[in-house]
Design a binder for these strands. Structure first.
Length: 775
DNA sequence: CAGTGAGCGAGCTTCCGCTTGACTT
């Protein structure tokens, strides 16, 4: 018999809690939700006042039956799911599915996993808050209605298997609109003036002072005029001012800020970060990684206080509580922090270590003092001109938290600041060494990275810590959005230089606009987005989630009935679904780019059955008329921005490279990039080395021979008796291939020594475990 | 799984938010 059964959401949490409590308690976990709306037939009886049809999904049946068994053996059941809307619903579903008797069921909540917090929670038990549960049901049902009524419209009007939803569709919209901002952006240039002045100190020691003109000039002529004016001008120190300033540490990590910093500092994708954090959490090294709270437990604060004092001294200590600014934050957990702050490093693989150290530094820094700075600004007058040069410098007086942590920014081109400025006096005359006027261009707004998209979504209150990573994956899996790099372009700019009273002009070249791992909308994403924005304007509104959240809050506080709220929404929403099905036609994005110079026929781009396509010539009207030529657009090329030249390029491939071994070699670009085809085999071109438009036959033959060499070494063993069986060398080392299925070879086995029956044994042993493959 | 671009039709796809497996060809 178990006296007390505590049910929490996560098994790692269960393990930790069990350690705190005595033998009287058994702690088990539900692994999140145990029930959900049925997937087939919508799962909601609209006519029966939106009655939800809940089922236990296949993968949760085992957990439920285990919990049922435990409940049968227990005196008191404590439902300890998280203290938020979803957690309350989990507690309620548990009580329903496990048929818990209210007389021996208690609901408890705690925000920190400490013995005190748990014992305190147990003392202050309550019953399930049904208003909060209803708010969750409203949220769940609204999302189901939106997702399952709009998605089928997309299947019929645009393409099968597409999807729409309250969160993902807005995420795509952000990316599409940013792309259009970039396409519409017109870069302008102006001239930035920088002067270098010679400064002599009392001992005759010479140093330099760099100063910037407060004004930029729009044209080269204005810049030139100014430099000419400077040639013989006098430069006088007009003013020197010194101001103290400070920098404060950032709050401890939440899911979203961890994803952003891990992306900026360590280059991890959002899902990589979450997978590594999960490992750290499961091995007890950090607190829970899906959280929107910046709060640290008293225990953590005490520990931070001790460490900072002993490592850095009392001056560095500044214990404080941070408040969340995030819209709709539910704060059921602590911030993400090391479980044991006295460990500044851990055992584990490299990426785990790096992420842990990042978390450790951020947590410690959050409880350290502000950095104290001194900013100096020197104003320099120019005789015969209204303009002024300003030299500014920044000196760190006290490093404070910067001793351990410096937060990065997304800003790619940050100005470097000068440090200490040379000692100068007001009225002092300065001699210039050089004065430059450099042409600078305005830059379009940056494309989103995975992490900066998460930050934007969080800012809008859309999505939750547990869904950021999956949402980012979904919009990529649907083909709406593409994560890729973009090569920079070269651009000339003008530099005017004044030295020794003479101005010279020169041209320089720079690379601009190169981007790494940025999110680009694909054509289908743009078409779906435009369709949704046109017909489902309200759902696609950036404030839609914030608006419905207000209504969920009213339900949670007991001031509103959930079915009334949903019914109100449905009355407006469903007629839109009906009318959209009837009248709407998606825009195929068709554009006429111009005429093909070779044939004079029109060049068109549009969305075809297999994706975006360019076409030369009109569609055939009858059997005799000539058929148009087609070429697929490449990844990252948009229907609305592709130029005639780029479209014509597409028709240059595939092209023949001549004969080799009595067969033609053809170069083209396929799904996996550029390739050479020869005798119906494909040979990939080397990324960054070969260009499909330029490659010649010699190099193609080289590639073919290279791959053949690898193929030759691929086969370790073959068996006469079993032609379908081979031992092969693969990307991950040796493996067994049998009738197109692959099998792992156990570690301690020498692959070259495998006999036929050994292979068969390995195959037999692993075949039981084989699960249906996912796409 | 790299080429295609006719047309028909059955059966399928899809949401968000909790959680962790099982799995790398």
């Amino acid at each position: 018999m178990i006296n007390n059964l505590i049910i929490v959401e996560s098994p790692a949490k269960a393990k930790t809690i069990e350690k705190f409590l005595g033998k009287d308690y058994h702690v088990s976990s539900s692994m999140g939700h145990i029930r959900d709306l049925e997937k087939k037939d919508f799962g909601i009886d609209i006519k029966d006042n939106f009655k939800p049809r809940y089922i236990v999904p296949e993968d949760k049946k085992k957990i439920v039956s285990e919990l049922k068994k435990l409940v049968g053996e227990s005196k008191t059941v404590w439902l300890a799911s998280d203290e938020d809307r979803e957690g309350e619903a989990i507690a309620w579903h548990l009580s329903e599915v496990l048929k818990l008797d209210s007389s021996r069921t208690r609901r408890i909540v705690f925000h920190e996993i400490t013995k005190e917090a748990i014992l305190d929670a147990i003392k202050n038990y309550r019953t399930i808050d049904h208003n909060l549960v209803d708010a969750q049901q409203a949220r769940r049902i609204l999302d189901r209605i939106v997702g399952f009524e709009i998605s089928p419209i997309l299947w019929r009007k645009i393409k099968p298997s597409l999807s729409a939803g309250r969160v993902q569709s807005v995420a795509v919209r952000l990316i599409v609109e940013r792309e259009r901002e970039i396409n519409d952006f017109v870069s302008t240039s102006s001239f930035k003036i920088t002067g270098r002045f010679i400064v002599k100190d009392k001992n005759g020691k010479i140093s330099e002072l760099e100063a910037e003109l407060s004004k930029k000039f729009a044209t080269k002529k204005e810049a030139l005029d100014f430099l000419n004016k400077c040639a013989k001008a006098k430069f006088t120190i007009k003013d020197i001012s010194t101001k103290p300033s400070k920098k404060s540490p950032s709050p401890p990590f939440t899911t979203s800020t961890l994803q952003q910093e891990a992306s900026r500092k360590l280059g991890y994708s959002v899902s990589q970060t979450m997978m590594i954090a999960q490992k750290l959490y499961e091995s007890g090294k950090i607190t829970y990684m899906r959280t929107d709270s910046v709060n640290l437990s008293q225990l953590a604060l005490n520990s931070a206080s001790k460490i900072i004092t002993s490592e850095f001294g009392k001056d560095y200590l500044n214990i404080k509580a941070y408040k969340t600014k995030t819209k709709g934050a539910q704060e059921a957990h602590e911030a993400i922090r090391p479980t044991y702050l006295d460990k500044d490093t851990i055992q584990g693989n490299n990426s785990e270590k790096k992420l842990y150290e990042l978390i450790w530094k951020r947590t410690i820094a959050s409880q350290m003092s502000d950095a104290q700075l001194e900013k100096t600004s020197i104003t320099i007058d120019i005789s015969g001109s209204e303009e002024r040069f300003i030299a500014s410098g920044e000196v760190l007086k006290f490093d404070g938290f910067l001793k351990v942590y410096f937060e990065s920014t997304d800003d790619e081109q940050e100005d470097e600041k000068q440090g200490l400025l040379p000692p100068l006096n007001i009225g002092e005359l300065l001699q210039y060494k050089t004065i430059d006027a450099v042409e600078r261009f305005t830059h379009y707004p940056p494309r989103y990275t995975e992490a900066s998209l998460v930050r934007k979504l969080e800012e809008l209150g859309i999505g939750r810590p547990s869904t950021y990573a999956p949402t980012i994956s979904t919009i990529q899996n649907r083909g709406y959005v593409l994560k890729t790099d973009k090569a920079g372009k070269a651009r000339d700019y003008t530099v005017l230089n004044l030295t020794n009273e003479k101005v010279t002009e020169s041209k320089k070249s720079e690379l601009y606009g190169s981007e790494k791992s940025k999110l680009f909308p694909d054509n289908i994403g743009m078409i779906v987005n435009d369709f949704l924005v046109e017909y489902f304007t309200e759902i696609l509104d950036y404030n839609f989630t914030a608006n419905v959240e207000k209504e969920f809050d009213e339900i949670a506080s007991g001031n509103r009935n959930w079915t009334e709220m949903i019914s109100g929404f449905y009355k407006k929403f469903h007629p839109t679904v009906e009318s959209t099905l009837k009248k709407s036609e998606p825009n195929k994005g068709e554009r006429i780019l111009g005429k093909d110079p070779a044939t004079g026929k029109p060049v068109i781009v549009k969305m075809g059955r297999y994706g975006a396509v360019a076409q030369i010539g009109e569609n055939a009207t009858d059997e005799k008329s000539e058929k148009p030529r087609f070429a697929s657009l490449r990844k990252g090329q948009n229907l609305e921005s592709i130029t005639l030249e780029e479209a014509l390029e597409l028709f240059k491939l595939p092209r023949s490279l001549g004969m080799f071994e009595e067969a033609e070699m053809v170069v083209g670009i396929g799904k996996f990039g550029p390739y050479v085809r020869h005798k119906s085999a494909f040979y990939s071109l080397k990324k960054g080395v070969d260009d499909p438009y330029l490659i010649e036959s010699d190099r193609a033959i080289e590639l073919i021979r290279e791959k053949r060499e690898i193929e030759k070494n691929k086969v370790i063993k073959e068996y006469k008796e079993e032609p379908g069986l081979k031992v092969l060398n693969g990307r991950w080392g040796p493996y067994i291939s049998f009738n197109k299925e692959n099998y792992k070879i156990p570690k301690n086995v020498d692959p070259a020594a495998l006999k036929l029956e050994d292979c068969m044994n390995i195959i037999k042993n692993s075949s039981d475990k084989k699960k249906p493959k996912k796409k």
